[in-house]
Design a protein around this nucleic acid. Structure first.
Length: 415
RNA sequence: GUGAGUGUAGCUCAGCGGAUAGAGCACUGGACUGUGGCUCCAGGUGUCGGGGGUUCAAAUCCCCUCACUCACCCCA
């Protein structure tokens, strides 16, 4: 018999880990909602060209990491590699810009990229993200960063830093690209193979190449920050001032470019200190809405990699100890026991029962091993006397409780 | 897509040409008949990832393949 195994890059998240996931999700949802964000749920499948147009057809994400296929009618479909393009599509399709000036969305769900799996990287991974549509003021950028900062701190993640940069608008970004392209062409023989291609297709990407010979010539390259037009420059300064004013731990990195084409002006990444894996990333995308067929509307947002946050959360509480383990001995006790169990459930008390015929000793072993603190023991003796036994596994203490007083007493004890 | 490492009991691993493949933990039963954890005793733990080759002899060496892990690329 063939044993089926999960697909490469996929994973099962088991109950003992779920508590941490839920905690993280809830913190991000809560903080976002406090800032007036509303949830949007978008499809996992989209027209493949939405991503090509939105993210950029020369990006790695689109070129080699997209799960794509044809459906039964031959339509070109892709599993979303990220959510921004979909959110913007929904924003345009539902004409939300006609309903409000500023739209604040948050989303949460699985994304798919056909990557080689490794630490903190999966083919199905989970992102929480926000998008603010309709605002061009740098404080919207600041707000995004602020939400991340508050959420991470609430999760007791302390040692992280925001790497920030500005890519400028269409004009200054374009001028800068021209400039560095000329420079790279002049030094083309020094560049690695990859970067020779990048010089043609996406010169910005050469900036964060880790190859030594490429890095050597990058030292002499002008900073993009010196190419910003007045508007972009002021925008960036205001953004930085915001970070200063609100005590955000940040560092300007003029080489930070990011792999998605739609970014303009502000870009940022959150990196835990002493690690070079980004746990969140985002920035402004003032041209994207127009690019995929909507009106000319500026926007900013971020995405957090939940898979990468989970290992940073320490606590691992055992939630099992709040479930009462109901031990019923014999057939009579099973029926009577289920009656009692139902009453407990109606009172919102967590309880579980094992209906197999086991000895009391075995039941207690199981309770102990699975970390239960409380057991209810019910056998013929107890039924005849109209009582139940409530046992505290932790203290090794047990008491007889009259059935009529049961709910009240149990609530009191297990509180 | 490129490179490196690892696949042996349910788990963590040892064994690295030689006999019937081992340890700890976990598991099952008993000492203890309706009272767990501690202790002691007894016991299954196995296609040695899969296929092929070399050899008198392969878990061990070689080739192929698959899976996992890590790194590069890129990203969350």
């Amino acid at each position: 018999m063939e044993i089926f195994k999960k697909l490469r890059g996929m994973r099962d998240i088991l109950p003992e880990e779920i508590e941490r996931w839920k905690k993280i999700e809830n913190v991000f949802i809560e903080v976002s909602e406090l800032f007036g964000f509303k949830e949007i749920r978008i499809p996992i499948l989209e027209n493949k060209y939405l991503f090509e147009r939105g993210i950029g057809s020369n990006t790695d994400v689109v070129m080699k990491e997209m799960y794509e296929f044809k459906d039964k009618k031959g339509r070109e479909i892709a599993l979303r590699p990220e959510a921004t393009a979909s959110v913007v599509r929904a924003y345009i399709e539902n004409q939300i810009y006609n309903k409000e000036k500023i739209t604040r969305f948050y989303y949460y769900g699985p994304m798919f990229r056909y990557d080689r799996p490794q630490k903190g990287r999966y083919r199905q991974f989970y992102q929480f993200g926000i998008e603010i549509l309709g605002g061009k003021h740098p404080f919207f950028d600041g707000e995004s960063v602020q939400i991340l900062d508050i959420a991470f701190k609430r999760l007791n993640i302390e040692n992280f830093i925001f790497l920030i940069n500005s890519l400028g608008c269409k004009n200054c970004k374009g001028k800068y690209i021209e400039e560095i392209k000329k420079y790279f062409l002049a030094n083309i023989n020094v560049l690695c193979e990859e970067c020779k291609i990048r010089t043609e297709k996406n010169p910005l990407r050469v900036l964060d190449c880790k190859n030594n010979s490429c890095r050597a010539i990058l030292n002499k390259i002008p900073s993009i920050l010196d190419f910003l037009c007045i508007e972009c420059k002021v925008h960036f300064e205001n953004f930085v001032n915001f970070l200063e004013r609100f005590d955000i731990n940040y560092k300007i990195n003029p080489k930070l470019v990011r792999g998605l084409d739609y970014y303009t002006k502000t870009v940022f990444e959150v990196v835990p200190e002493k690690e070079d894996i980004a746990i969140a990333g985002g920035g402004r995308y003032d041209n994207l809405v127009k690019e995929i067929g909507g009106p000319d509307i500026p926007a900013v947002g971020f995405a957090v990699g939940i898979d990468r946050i989970v290992p940073l959360i320490k606590e691992k509480e055992n939630k099992n100890n709040e479930i009462i383990y109901f031990i019923s001995l014999g057939e009579r006790a099973k029926i009577k026991g289920f009656e009692i169990m139902k009453k407990l459930v109606e009172e919102r008390i967590k309880v579980e029962m094992d209906y197999e015929d086991r000895s009391l000793k075995e039941y207690l072993k199981i309770a102990n091993k699975t970390g239960k603190r409380w057991c209810i023991i019910l056998g013929d003796n107890e039924i005849d006397r109209g009582i139940i036994i409530l046992k505290d596994m932790k203290e090794g203490f047990q008491e007889e409780i009259k059935e009529e007083e049961m709910i009240e007493k149990i609530k009191e004890r297990i509180k």
